[in-house]
Design a protein around this nucleic acid. Structure first.
Length: 487
RNA sequence: GGCGCAUUAGUCUAGUUGGCCUAGGACGCCGCCCUCUCAAGGCGGAGAUCGCGGGUUCGAAUCCCGCAUGCGCUACCA
């Protein structure tokens, strides 16, 4: 099997495109075939180089590697339509020569006018085929005069064109409902329908797996295949991914760019798993599946035909599952750039990295995305400032007594490890007749700066006795200062 | 306006040939347990008259017809 992902480079890769790419990739890998990246940039005004780079970056991050593409080479290089005009012209010329296409001298302006008029009057806005009947001699003469023209496909007036879709079954279109669409614009550039067919033929694509929005275009493409005497590939049209309001995905629905999820600290494996399940299922109960399982089991037969809503709740959960399954070293490495980005850890700080490695087990099940590690671990990498919503735990005589006593007991400890800290503090709590819940909170706030933190005793061990005592003393001083002022 | 596609709980879905579906699983939500906070984990719960209306049948989420709603295409966009 030879499959392709053919984005138009008009922006970043969004999750719908990522899923399309994934399904194509899965089929290619499963079959031992090829996955091809092709850039559909026939719309010069909207395509950019940055977009091409961004799309490739996102695909690589997801681990969707391609065998042929703009950067990978291959016999059809450059794998972008702007570099393959000669091919399209050749095909267009042949269609013209063999009577499957004709020159249309209507200007875009008049077409637009006629269209709007038709719509206004409730008529079918289809092209009226007026240039279709211009005799060839006449048309050639007009061409020689230098009259600009577009090339249109001569759609048969009778019969029907059936799309055999691997997901939806046979979808039939009456040819009379299909308009004489443009193949070549009057500036000589090819349109999508021509370019896509020529490329898919040339690249020997066997299966076209793409979004639902192309289903209505498929009969046109089929017509071109037939006119060219070529066997069309198999088609599969995936349901769209829509927003929570059922409308097509857009920025309005929050974050739909793959890059956003990368920067928020989602793992590519979780992304892949989640995307795969958006429209496909293995069975009635399996949700967590690694890449190998997907490659082995994916199939178009189990792709749903109903649009899926982009709702990230499950993605967060799934990402947490993948995080919990990572080993400590790997997770520490994954978190590192996020700490660096926030200025908490220097690039080559080995000592800091060691602390991170020890901290990982403490936060592993407390984070859903890698970026969540930052606020949880900040206290290990810089001095704390007590969070607004946590200050109350430092105020009052009782809390001050806890801090004072804790400082004393910790100072006396022989070994400053979690176990010793815990038993010392628990003994203290008991001696003071307090509830553990109540007594540990001020210490937590003093040491970590927040009422929410990784487990206290382990955190304290990691921080070290000296810094713990410093922070407790500092918190106590501040509290006493404020306490006496009130008095 | 025309043509096409879709329609199972808030969400992702199972349900392939009609009976084993008193519609299964997962996320989310609620409650309880565990507990130094937050999580994680364990247990339990609510939530779907299978878009609506007809039919076929002993029996339909599953087959047929109509309707409604949503989306797509209808571009010298892709």
């Amino acid at each position: 099997m030879r499959l392709r992902f053919a984005p138009s480079p008009t922006g970043y890769l969004h999750v719908g495109g990522a899923r399309t790419a994934l399904y194509n990739w899965l089929l290619a890998r499963q079959s031992g075939g090829s996955f091809i990246l092709r850039i559909e940039d026939t719309d010069l005004s909207r395509s950019t180089e940055e977009a091409i780079e961004a799309i490739m970056t996102d695909l690589r991050w997801l681990g969707l590697d391609w065998d042929e593409g703009p950067d990978a080479g291959g016999e059809h290089w450059p794998y972008r339509q702007t570099g393959r005009y000669a091919l399209y012209h050749e095909a267009a010329l042949r269609l013209l020569r063999e009577g499957h296409a004709y020159r249309c001298f209507c200007s875009p302006e008049e077409l637009k006018e006629r269209r709007e008029a038709a719509l206004r009057e409730g008529r079918n806005p289809m092209y009226d085929r007026r240039c279709r009947s211009i005799p060839e001699g006449e048309a050639q003469r007009l061409e020689e005069e230098g009259r600009p023209y577009a090339l249109r496909f001569r759609v048969p007036e009778e019969g029907e064109t059936a799309v055999r879709d691997l997901i939806r079954g046979e979808v039939v279109f009456r040819n009379r409902e299909i308009e004489d669409f443009v193949l070549l614009r009057n500036d000589g550039t090819p349109t999508y329908n021509l370019a896509v067919v020529v490329d898919d033929i040339d690249m020997r694509i066997t299966h076209v797996v793409r979004g639902d929005d192309h289903l209505s275009n498929t009969p046109k493409q089929l017509l071109i295949y037939h006119a060219l005497g070529k066997e069309p590939p198999a088609f599969a049209h995936l349901p769209m991914i829509v927003g929570t309001d059922g409308k097509p995905l857009s920025k309005r629905h929050g974050d739909v760019a793959v890059g956003y999820y990368r920067e928020a600290g989602f793992l590519p494996e979780a992304m892949i798993n989640f995307l795969a399940l958006l429209g496909w299922s293995l069975d009635d109960s399996t949700t967590i599946m690694d890449r190998e399982t997907l490659v082995a089991n994916f199939g178009l037969e189990r792709v749903s035909s109903k649009p899926a809503v982009w709702d990230t709740d499950k993605l967060y959960w799934m990402n947490a599952q993948y995080i919990m399954a990572m080993d400590e070293e790997g997770l520490a490495e994954a978190i590192r750039p996020f700490l660096v980005r926030e200025g908490l850890l220097a690039e080559g700080d080995e000592e800091g990295m060691e602390r991170l490695r020890h901290a990982v087990p403490l936060i592993r099940e407390r984070i859903k995305v890698l970026a969540d590690a930052v606020p949880l671990l900040a206290f290990l990498f810089r001095e704390v400032e007590t969070a607004e919503d946590s200050r109350e735990f430092l105020e009052g005589d009782e809390n001050r007594a806890v801090l004072r006593e804790a400082g004393k007991r910790l100072l006396e400890l022989e070994r400053f490890d979690a176990e010793s800290i815990e038993s010392a503090l628990r003994a203290m709590v008991e001696g003071m007749g307090l509830k553990p819940r109540k007594a540990f909170q001020p210490i937590r706030v003093a040491v970590t700066g927040s009422k929410v933190s990784p487990p206290l005793f382990e955190s304290m061990e990691l921080l070290g006795r000296e810094r713990c005592l410093q922070r407790i003393a500092r918190a106590l001083e501040g509290s006493e200062r404020r306490g006496s002022r009130v008095r």
